[in-house]
């Protein structure tokens, strides 16, 4: 199991948002059991030892749930494996001698901060525009007085598992955020708690999404194909339906 893999890395280096970036090549020895980010740790220790600048990249939980890690690996957000984030990708998915190209998310709504780190603040602003149920602390009724059929709860949960990573945007040739927005709108529009603001919510979120400069959706499906949480394309259909019906009602 512990055969060493020699990996040729081509990594996007960019000092900050104002400077131009370029690819740089590095060689790393990896172990098949290490994660992709641990391979970057090894690279960075090597760079520091050589007196060079380590590669900046975002990460935190390293178990696929915080949504912080964000690398485009050989052209695919979060790499070649289905249903995993960058931090959950292991080097056993690569072969000895492979060349691996690593870039940041590419979307004008996600400007590069440095190297592989980008600014995804636009997602927070979309949620702030309407991705919530307006219920102040202390206003709640007993939890079991709201009965929700199991299949509805399960479906809402499935949509709610989005980790806000932005891979969908990066995967889309138009840099559309419809999958991300659709996931939240689907979750809240299915649940009884979300009904009161159902229409105002979807309109506010879509308006904010447009204001942030995300592109239009042309139903290519690249987003869902790359989503590490396998959020289904159907949430976009729901989003469209919810939006149209809200607009028809004059929202």
């Amino acid at each position: 199991m512990s055969d060493t893999l020699n990996i040729n890395l081509k990594v996007w280096r960019q000092a900050n948002g104002n400077e131009k970036g370029k690819f740089e090549s590095y060689q790393v020895q990896a172990n098949p059991d290490m994660s992709f980010l641990e391979m970057f740790d090894v690279l960075n220790e090597q760079l520091i030892e050589d007196g060079r600048e380590p590669v900046a990249f975002d990460h935190d939980c390293r178990e696929g749930i915080c949504g912080m890690c964000s690398m485009v690996i050989n052209g695919r957000p979060h790499g070649p494996k289905q249903g995993v984030t960058t931090c959950q990708l292991h080097m056993r998915s690569f072969k000895d001698g492979d060349t691996v190209v690593v870039e940041p998310w590419r979307a004008s709504a996600f400007p590069v901060i440095k190297d592989l780190s980008v600014d995804r603040g636009a997602f927070d602003r979309i949620i702030a525009a309407g991705g919530y149920v307006s219920v102040n602390t202390g206003n709640a009724v007993d939890a079991n007085s709201i009965l929700i059929p199991k299949d509805v709860a399960d479906k809402a949960f499935e949509a709610a598992t989005c980790i806000g990573c932005g891979a969908c945007v990066s995967a889309c040739k138009n840099a559309s955020a419809m999958l991300f927005v659709g996931a939240k709108v689907t979750q809240l529009s299915m649940l009884p708690q979300g009904q009161a603001e159902r229409e105002s919510r979807v309109v506010a979120m879509v308006n904010q999404m447009d204001a942030e400069g995300f592109g239009a959706c042309t139903n290519t499906g690249a987003c869902a194909a790359e989503c590490p949480k396998e959020i289904p394309l159907s949430v976009i259909a729901t989003l469209n339906r919810e939006y149209t019906s809200a607009k028809l009602k004059g929202r």
């Binding site: 919530y132 202390g138 939890a143 649940l191």
Partner: peptide, 22 residues
Amino acid sequence: TNIIDQCVAQGVPFAREYGGTL
């Protein structure tokens, strides 16, 4: 107990039984 009420009111999708209870 208030916490569970508050979270459910926010739309937190806790696991449920077939009858719709938590």
